[in-house]
Design a protein around this nucleic acid. Structure first.
Length: 312
DNA sequence: ACAATTTGACCGGG
DNA sequence: CCCGGTCAAATTGT
């Protein structure tokens, strides 16, 4: 079971990946046990540890996955409006206005104008159900994934068009542990607007040098998160709504489906969420998986700042 | 009325 | 051809 996420690996790394997935599975089980036996006054170093372990697994897996699939440095050119690079969605209207296109075209002719994202850096994060990373995302798709119980959701930055921000993310519920979501961040934010976040948070941060900014926040913002409650709630609502329809249904698993419906009840999700929150805020866990990040890139600054948003 | 999400179709890579 | 990523019309929410 499981091991459906990374499907793109030759053979040696693959074995390693399977091992890692198994390890992660075990860690998840341990985590479940702990949250049962401890209740939610949290503050258990054990759970702290488990979360660290889980993150290590996640990061290692993402490293392995990207290790052989891309060797690129692809710092994607971020240019909002050079018509040279703008695919087709910048000026599609003109073409459609001459809509008399003889083609049967129930759909406009999209041939050739379909830009598939070049593999840029991706960072994988496992987070308890409803974490908001503080960025404004716009959902643009949802897909059932082969062999996966839960669909994958596709988001891009809300400011893709007005600011040319290339950031995107994919979110999928982890089937071994439906409480957790795996989020793959692709590309980095070039937008400046934190629409959801009141400015008071940012006031300590001038708006250049994201590196400084993120570290700064790490130390200063640990205890005040004025936006947590609001964004939290909205996300809750959204998530539950999403999960309601047909957890499985996908393609082929007609027979086992009945058992799939007993996804963990809401309370469990909430409880463990609170637990994680507590744990996360009490220790700088995330900051150390810089190892996953630091090996490459330039865009990491933004992810660092995403990380600390996970930290409350 | 506008903005965000849903959803089926399309596209390109493997 | 299949699968996953993206587009965009239709629908739903604010």
């Amino acid at each position: 079971m499981g091991c459906s996420w990374p499907e793109n690996s030759p053979s040696k790394p693959r074995k390693a990946i399977e091992e890692l997935i198994q390890g992660r599975e075990f860690a998840n089980q341990l985590r479940g046990l702990l949250s049962k036996s401890i209740g939610y006054d949290g503050s258990a170093p054990e759970k702290d540890l488990v979360l660290k372990i889980l993150n290590s697994f996640a990061n290692t897996l993402s490293l392995l996955n990207s290790a052989e699939s891309d060797v690129d440095v692809d710092v994607t050119q971020v240019q909002p409006n050079t018509q040279a690079s703008s695919p087709c969605w910048d000026a599609p209207k003109s073409e459609s206005s001459g809509e008399s296109c003889r083609s049967i075209s129930t759909v406009k002719d999209r041939r050739g104008c379909y830009k598939r994202r070049r593999t840029s850096q991706t960072i994988t994060k496992d987070t308890p159900t409803l974490i908001d990373d503080g960025h404004a995302w716009r959902k643009y798709g949802q897909k059932a994934i082969l062999n996966a119980k839960y669909p994958r959701h596709y988001y891009r930055c809300t400011h893709k068009h007005d600011q040319g921000c290339q950031a995107a993310k994919q979110v999928q519920r982890i089937q071994e542990d439906p409480v957790m979501h795996r989020t793959i961040y692709i590309g980095h934010h070039t937008c400046r607007t934190f629409s959801k976040v009141p400015e008071l948070i940012l006031d300590a941060s001038p708006d250049d040098s994201p590196f400084v900014l993120s570290f700064d926040n790490t130390f200063t913002n640990k205890h005040n998160h004025p936006f947590l409650s609001s964004s939290f709630q909205s996300v809750v609502k959204q998530e539950y709504k999403e999960e309601m329809p047909a957890a499985d249904d996908i393609t082929h698993n007609n027979q086992s489906s009945s058992s799939d419906y007993l996804v963990s009840p809401d309370e469990t999700a909430l409880e463990s969420f609170y637990n994680s929150i507590t744990d996360l805020s009490s220790s700088p866990i995330e900051s150390d998986n810089g190892d996953g990040i630091s090996r490459t890139l330039v865009g990491s600054a933004d992810f660092a700042d995403a990380d600390l948003l996970f930290e409350f």
